[in-house]
């Protein structure tokens, strides 16, 4: 979904590891080692017009849409490998008017498109919390696309913390050993027609693979979760295309609209095409239920 493509004309300071993922730009993949520059404090970052053009062409985006979409993020990334963010939309999901896509963008990351979420009226509320990696000082953007095609954006500038902070994983071997474990949880009590919070946590290194192995002199292949699908019975609740801008052990909090007893199903696919599944019971009136 997110091919490795180099966006042409990016300032070296943006392409920290010399690689950027583009969406609709058809330049072949290049892994370049560029000299890292100081994290530039530039806003808006020059990458944004390119990403905007590739995703939305010339469509109008409402950038003063606080009544539609809010993005919560810390001003300063305490731990650049794990920056909690929340996208909150202010409209209830109804068949006539709903958020059908949420884009999460991190301008100055090697791959700026962190995630594209698809939602439905059965999502209940188009709110998503997750954790992202921040490579350097950057704008983070959330863009909501409604079913009528209108676009609304919220953005926050996040400073990556210096010193020991690095977006790399703390214990890569441990992460690899545990890959594929899933924790899936519904917050009860559940009532028909009332959006309920769901937490989906996937144990996975979610690694960029851009790292040059000092011994072999080879780039390690990327290994990250690329797709997740959540269903309630046979109804789609959430579909997400994600990449390594999402933190190690990808973690999502979102909503679904309960209507009757049943189950939520999660399917996760990573870049080695390994798939992991989990399910959690939905019982109206019941208390929180966990992965079984």
């Amino acid at each position: 979904m997110f091919p490795f493509q180099r966006l042409s004309g990016i300032a070296p300071s943006i392409a920290l590891v010399g690689l950027a993922a583009g969406f609709a730009l058809a330049t072949p993949a290049v892994v370049a080692q560029s000299t890292p520059q100081a994290p530039a404090q530039i806003s808006p970052a020059p990458i944004w017009p390119k990403v905007r053009n590739s995703l939305f062409s010339t469509r109008t985006i409402d950038e003063n849409a606080g009544e539609i979409i809010v993005l919560e993020a810390p001003n300063r990334a305490e731990d650049a490998s794990t920056v909690p963010i929340a996208i909150r939309t202010q409209i209830m999901q109804s068949p006539s008017r709903y958020v059908q896509k949420l884009y999460l963008l991190v301008d100055n990351n090697p791959s700026p498109i962190a995630a594209v979420f698809e939602l439905t009226p059965d999502s209940g509320r188009a709110d998503i919390e997750t954790r992202i990696r921040i490579e350097q000082y950057t704008d983070v953007r959330a863009i909501a696309e409604l079913n009528d095609g209108s676009l609304y954006m919220a953005s926050r500038y996040v400073k990556a913390s210096g010193g020991c902070s690095a977006p790399a994983g703390k214990d890569p071997k441990e992460a690899l050993r545990n890959a594929g474990r899933i924790k899936f949880k519904v917050d009860g009590p559940l009532a028909a027609g009332k959006p309920a919070a769901v937490q989906l946590a996937i144990s996975h290194p979610n690694a960029s693979g851009l790292v040059l192995d000092q011994v072999s002199r080879l780039y390690e292949p990327a290994y990250y979760v690329r797709k997740l699908t959540v269903r309630y019975g046979d109804k789609a609740v959430l579909t997400a295309d994600i990449d390594f801008s999402i933190s190690e052990n990808p973690n999502f909090r979102f909503y679904f609209l309960p209507s009757s007893d049943g189950a939520l199903y999660a399917d996760v696919v990573d870049t080695k095409d390994l798939s992991f599944s989990s399910e959690v019971a939905v019982k109206l009136g019941g208390i929180a239920s966990n992965t079984r």
């Binding site: 890292p36 520059q37 100081a38 490579e135 977006p167 790399a168 790292v211």
Partner: peptide, 18 residues
Amino acid sequence: PAALAARRDGFLANLRYT
């Protein structure tokens, strides 16, 4: 070595910035 490979560029960018 692996930890260094993963972090060196980031560390260097931070140091240059500082």
